[in-house]
């Protein structure tokens, strides 16, 4: 179509030792992806892709390469691609992780790298699951500041110590890696799940919030914190390093402390 113009030669002299991007080591990987397309088949299956990737690439880059160059029908969620938005949680080599935070070189590249959708939520297509049950539980714990009395005309001040009390649970990005790694959630999907409890914890222990009792009452449900068996899968899965099981235990203690 348009005549391609030759790139002008760089005016910056680089020594040979610095080189360009081509010096990053490359390696070949096999990517095994769990595919599901309800418009074609009710059964899901594995697809394998042979890729040549760079040492700086992540699993997300491998998925991009497949989607952009090999098979455009592959579907997955991703938004920021930098570990903040929480869109691309998936089961990589049997562990829940963010595809955008998992470097290929940290995985065993001699064997196929398996990528599956997170477990316990209904799969819609390929790696995309229906997150609605997850967000339903999240909404139920009222993840917003509730305060009695008149709103102040200035910001609500809080001491550094009071802020520190719930600092860990403010890091949640709602990727569902924890909830979908929990064996109790897998069985019947009734359990509120670690993510909802973590986000309740964030407000229960906030000195500016006045609805802690209501949230504790909600999580005292028979599908609430008491279904936690301290399996620690959630703590292991959290890409933000939140001590999820510890947060759940603190909510349990708060419910008990309220009773006695």
């Amino acid at each position: 179509m348009s005549a391609s113009t030759v790139e002008p030669a760089s005016k910056v002299e680089l020594p040979a030792s610095v080189g360009g991007g081509g010096e990053i080591p490359t390696f070949d990987i096999t990517l095994r992806v769990r595919r599901y397309n309800p418009e074609v088949s009710e059964e899901s299956h594995w697809d394998e892709y042979q890729l040549t990737m760079y040492g700086t690439d992540r699993v997300l880059d491998a998925l991009h390469k497949v989607k952009w160059e090999l098979d455009g029908s592959l579907s997955f969620r991703r938004s920021c691609a930098h570990g903040v938005c929480g869109s691309d949680a998936m089961r990589i080599n049997g562990r829940n992780r963010l595809a955008c935070k998992t470097l290929l070189k940290d995985l065993d590249t001699s064997k196929p790298i398996t990528v599956e959708p997170i477990k316990g939520l209904p799969v819609e297509k390929d790696l995309i699951v229906d997150m609605e049950p997850f967000f339903q539980s999240y909404r139920e714990i009222m993840p917003f500041l509730i305060s009695k009395g008149h709103a102040p005309t200035k910001e609500r001040l809080q001491s550094a110590e009071d802020r520190e009390r719930f600092d860990d649970t403010t890091k949640c990005i709602l990727c569902a890696a924890c909830t979908s790694s929990c064996p109790v959630f897998w069985t019947d999907g009734q359990y509120f799940g670690p993510a909802a409890i973590v986000n309740a914890h964030r407000f229960i222990f906030d000195s500016r919030d006045d609805a802690g009792d209501m949230r504790l009452e909600i999580l005292n449900d028979k599908e609430g914190v008491w279904r936690c068996r301290t399996v620690f899968n959630c703590t292991e899965a959290c890409p933000r390093g939140i001590q999820v099981t510890k947060a759940i235990s603190e909510v349990k203690q708060a419910i008990l402390a309220r009773q006695f």
């Binding site: 209904p122 229906d130 609605e132 049950p133 339903q136 019947d188 999907g189 009734q190 909600i218 005292n220 449900d221 028979k222 599908e223 609430g224 008491w226 279904r227 349990k252 419910i255 008990l256 009773q259």
Partner: peptide, 22 residues
């Protein structure tokens, strides 16, 4: 809005027994 499997039946059943059991 969500698959019926995920709707918590019992409509906010009190967990007093579960807490006592724990």
């Amino acid at each position: 809005r969500i698959a019926p499997k995920y709707n918590r039946h019992g409509g906010g059943a009190k967990g007093g027994f579960e807490m006592a059991a724990w």
